[in-house]
Simulated scan of single mutants.
Amino acid sequence: MSPRRQLPSSNLTPADVSRLKVLVVDDHAMTVRLVTDVLRAAGVEHVHGASDGLRARDLLSAIHPDIIFTDSKMPHMDGLEFTRSIRRAAIHADPRVPNPQVPIVMVTADRSVRDVHIARLAGVNEFVIKPFTPAALLSRIQLVLTKPRPFIISEAYVGPDRRRRVELNYSGPLRRTSDPDEVADGVERDQARETIGVELEAMRRLVAARGGVDRATLQMIYRVMQHTTFRARQVRDRAVERASLSMLAYVDAMGGPDACDPEVIEAHFETIGALLKTEALDEATAAKLAQDLERMVAMKTMLRRVAAA
């Protein structure tokens, strides 16, 4: 098995990651499991789950987590009140909260300015927007642990310094007409390829951890391939763009995880990985690798149509 890769510019070593203790709080068991599988596939060995803020708060003293991922909307105690209860312990000691300064990442579908402002006032460090990808989760770990912000304790506010601009980790297609169509800078290209590689490795480990491709995993693969297509297009990596588009076309044609052949998915992973590793790969060879995938998808699609007829 190849060594676990890290996100670009990360100072965290695989040993650091393996020792982390992470608490995942969400009232949807499938989300807890998905986040847990992503983190464990990335090398985090100690991941604990809770279904709401009350249960999570009762676990804090036993777990002593290094980082918390919490949903915003949950029964009994939501993510905002859970965060406030942790931060309040910095002023009024609470035996249930051993570390009031523990980094808290909110995993939420709420991305409005108002929602972000309220969460920041509660003392949230960072955000991951649903639906998420492996790199989104891993990048938040990297950020809160390698670039910690000063912790503020005052009558008006308790939590991480809010003066740094909050990033919502959106990595999909650019949306403003003023955004550039392509990025040709060599540094940007290297960073894009490294990020694609990290996502790819995370997905392969996730598939292995879950024992195959279920619906939730397939949805994440689809999002990762959308992001891969975008990143490859931005840096003019045509072969990687074609390979990721081929994966998207295959998933669309199959219509669900039950019909997707794991060998076809792995073939796409293998090809994209080969394209990323070989800088000196000539255009003709790279184009042939992408073309082979397209032919495979065309054949699988035809066979499915014949079987359905």
Rank of each mutant, 00 (worst) to 15 (best):
P14A: 01
P150H: 09
E263M: 02
V251I: 14
T301A: 13
S112Q: 03
M225W: 02
I86K: 08
I104E: 04
R238N: 12
I196D: 06
I104N: 06
E199I: 07
E266K: 04
L20N: 05
L54R: 11
T177S: 12
A135L: 12
R149H: 12
H64R: 09
E81K: 10
T70S: 14
A232Q: 05
A286Y: 01
F82W: 03
A119N: 06
S10L: 08
R140G: 05
L7H: 08
L245R: 14
F230L: 07
Q226I: 12
E279T: 11
L145H: 00
I265V: 14
P131F: 08
L248G: 03
P98F: 15
R5F: 12
Q142D: 15
V251E: 04
A184N: 07
L34C: 03
A90W: 14
P160G: 11
L138W: 00
P95F: 02
M247N: 10
A50L: 14
A280E: 10
P160E: 15
D78G: 11
P75R: 09
A284S: 10
V240G: 09
D110R: 13
V224Q: 00
S178I: 14
L303M: 15
A208Y: 01
R205K: 05
R305N: 07
Q6V: 12
Q6W: 06
T271A: 09
A122V: 04
T177Y: 07
G49E: 13
I221D: 09
E263N: 06
R140F: 06
M203F: 15
A41G: 15
A309H: 04
A298L: 04
N11W: 11
V198L: 11
A184L: 13
A239Y: 01
R120S: 14
M77A: 11
R111G: 15
R236D: 14
V128G: 04
D282A: 05
K300P: 00
S171V: 13
T177E: 03
R165N: 09
